[in-house]
């Protein structure tokens, strides 16, 4: 369990360092895979059929479908490989570590008397969420914003899983569906942006301000 969680966090760090869009996608796939393993582990522990289904869905959507769609978009619009960082990788990792520390502090404050494994799960999921937000902020390409959002969602999923044994079944299913539709729409959107501006560099959207 601990190992799997560390894997999730580690993949988040990997994504922070990675410069290329395809590497980001691979990182996301790996992270989702670790998440899948975690869900499976919890399902086995509780012997809960619903969590099995959730884990299966997670695998199908986050490990297979979404990375596939994203890499297809990337290939289709022939984005140049560099992900376009605002902050250099070293500093990014440093910030990511700081975020993890912050979530550690926060968790200590919110749930001072939680068990070790539980608090570890909350710390990791919280930092993954924050790192997802950080990813969205620090990258230029529109695709990385999508991935950042997905990473945040991973973090939230983990919180729910770790602290409450998953959200109600229907909510979980709905969230998956949401995420999936969201990626499809955003993919279309990125494609449109590319057609219009001939690149997907969101920093060019600055001219849209009032």
């Amino acid at each position: 369990m601990q190992l799997l969680l560390t894997g999730v966090l580690f993949m988040a760090f990997v994504m922070v360092i990675s410069k290329r869009v395809s590497a980001l996608i691979h990182g996301f796939r790996a992270q989702s895979f670790f998440l899948f393993l975690t869900a499976l582990y919890i399902a086995m522990l509780n012997n809960n059929a619903e969590i099995y289904i959730v884990a299966g869905l997670l695998f199908a959507i986050k490990v297979v479908a979404i990375p596939y769609i994203l890499s297809r978009i990337v290939r289709r619009i022939k984005v140049e490989e560099g992900a376009g960082l605002f902050i250099n990788p070293t500093l990014s990792v440093f910030i990511a570590v700081l975020l993890t520390y912050l979530s550690y502090l926060f968790t200590g404050r919110v749930m001072p008397d939680a068990g070790r494994s539980q608090s570890a799960a909350v710390i990791i999921s919280l930092s993954v969420t924050l790192i997802g937000l950080f990813l969205m902020m620090s990258r230029m390409k529109a695709v990385s914003q999508i991935i950042g959002l997905l990473v945040m969602e991973n973090g939230l999923f983990l919180i729910a899983m770790a602290s409450a044994g998953g959200m109600p079944f229907f909510v979980e299913i709905a969230v998956f569906f949401d995420i999936f539709v969201c990626v499809v729409i955003l993919g279309m959107f990125v494609y449109r942006i590319n057609k219009l501006f001939t690149h997907i560099n969101v920093s060019k959207l600055q001219e849209l301000k009032g």
Binding site: L133, M136, M137, R139, M140, Q145, L205, Q206, L208, K209
Partner: peptide, 12 residues
Amino acid sequence: SGSMHLYIFYIF
């Protein structure tokens, strides 16, 4: 500013 990153930064 119109920069999406900056907006995300605000949220952050």
